[in-house]
Design a protein around this nucleic acid. Structure first.
Lengths: 255, 255
DNA sequence: CGGAAAGTTGACACGCTTCAAAGTCCGTGG
DNA sequence: CCACGGACTTTGAAGCGTGTCAACTTTCCG
């Protein structure tokens, strides 16, 4: 699907081509900030550095690695994994095309987590010091970047609410609805998609066990909420799923 | 303790006074960024707007309020409260002198939580658009501000780890050790401090019940880890508490 | 001093984990 | 093509940590 034959080592000053490449892959987050004129984009393309391919299972960056660049996902999926004090791993997020990786390293100049590709993927490397120089001259872009960092904060606050207040079924419903929304934003079906992550990853992210995920999935299937074949999911009653996720609808007992 | 008779309506261009006032109250976070020269501070003081007092129990800002300013705490304590979809409240953090409030609103131009004063407090109001103008001209300050936002992100990731992976005792130990560190940074005792928040607030923050907090506290007292009188806490065995918090030491059964 | 709010303590319930075992998928090699 | 093995998934039964509920005690503050 994402087959592309992009010229690998073209000059970075080819503005129309840059613009095209950004919109083509819907890098709407940082590569194609809304409201920039040609002149601004000209500055921006200096910061948008090399592309980098990351194969499934490989790490884009690791805990402790010095912080130099942010990464905008051109296509593919990633997970970010934190290592707790006692060696336990926790997945703190799944990222997809158009999203930004590496913000967690800004505070310490050191990456706080591993970023692992869930499938063969490609990212834009964005040197952070160059980015800061540029946004100093482009207020629109600065505002945009700050909004992105703010989104990182609110996203995580939502996960805090999820882990703090929700029971297993609701967590899983939130997980599904969240994926649905993000795929819809990218022009894919909100009701049918492929899970790039294993059950184990999902369980870890939601702080549940794979057994619980399995049981909830079985329960959802029996209620006719979803259809599941391996990692292919169809949301059959998205309205009910939404109200489950919102906590409006009382969750049905698992037995 | 924090009795001060600051001239309320002095001119904001009094640079030496500004400098003094910032260091005096250890607003080391944003009001006194390290590495700024006099000239830079001159620019900065335009952004540092009015001071504002907030009485115990009052809200500095509320959910849905349009975002205009960030707030640097000059003295006092706050909690930030999020309202879940089904009306349930969750406390997502406690903030103390020198910390920044309002970052969560940057993504949406709308505050995502309530900020409630836990005691009579005072903040610096920092108009965000002015701040952005200024950091566009002061790279040092920009880097500093980004570091602060990054800290917001890493702080929340730590809470995610806490809520996701830790049992009740460990959560509470982390809570105590975290307070201890932050008081130490501010020149207060790391082993004796006063809790500004109720048991209910603590329980809510840690996603536990007040009964659990009470039981854990009793258990810690029995083990000689802490001494507690109302809201006054003494950490008697900070080493063991640290290893409990780190998950190194297996937690002792509650009975 | 009195009533309300906050904190403590005990008994029980429940949701999820843990442990165990069976079932399914899928690549590999005979 | 089928047999085999390992990884992943499903399902069941039991256990544990924490929530819930209720009663009691202490503290707070007019």
């Amino acid at each position: 699907m994402n087959k592309l034959s992009a010229p690998e080592s073209k000059t970075l000053l080819d503005i129309p081509a840059l613009k095209a490449s950004c919109s083509e892959f819907s890098l709407h987050e940082l590569c194609l900030p809304r409201g920039l004129d040609e002149d601004e984009i000209e500055h921006l393309d200096i910061a948008i550095g090399r592309r980098r391919r990351v194969l499934r299972g490989d790490r884009l960056f690791e805990v402790g690695e010095p912080f130099r660049k942010l990464y905008a996902i051109r296509y593919g999926h990633f997970k970010t994994v934190h290592i707790g004090a006692s060696g336990d791993e926790q997945i703190t997020g799944f990222q997809m095309t158009g999203e930004l990786l590496g913000l967690d390293a800004i505070s310490n100049d050191e990456h706080q987590c591993d970023a692992v590709a869930l499938e063969d993927s490609e990212v834009c490397e964005i040197p952070f010091d160059r980015l800061q120089e540029i946004i100093g001259q482009l207020p629109t872009l600065m505002r945009h970047f700050h909004r992105l960092m703010g989104q990182g904060i609110t996203r995580e606050q939502n996960v805090m609410l999820l882990l703090g207040n929700m029971r297993a079924e609701q967590r899983f419903a939130v997980f599904l609805i969240n994926l649905s929304l993000r795929y819809a934003e990218r022009g894919f079906s909100p009701t049918r998609f492929h899970l790039r992550m294993s059950r184990e990853d999902i369980a870890n992210y939601l702080s549940l066990t794979i057994e619980s995920i399995s049981r909830i999935l079985a329960s959802f299937k029996k209620q006719g909420l979803v259809k599941v074949d391996k990692r292919d999911v169809s949301l059959l009653q998205i309205v009910r799923l939404r109200s489950l996720a919102a906590g409006t609808e009382p969750s049905v007992s698992l037995r």
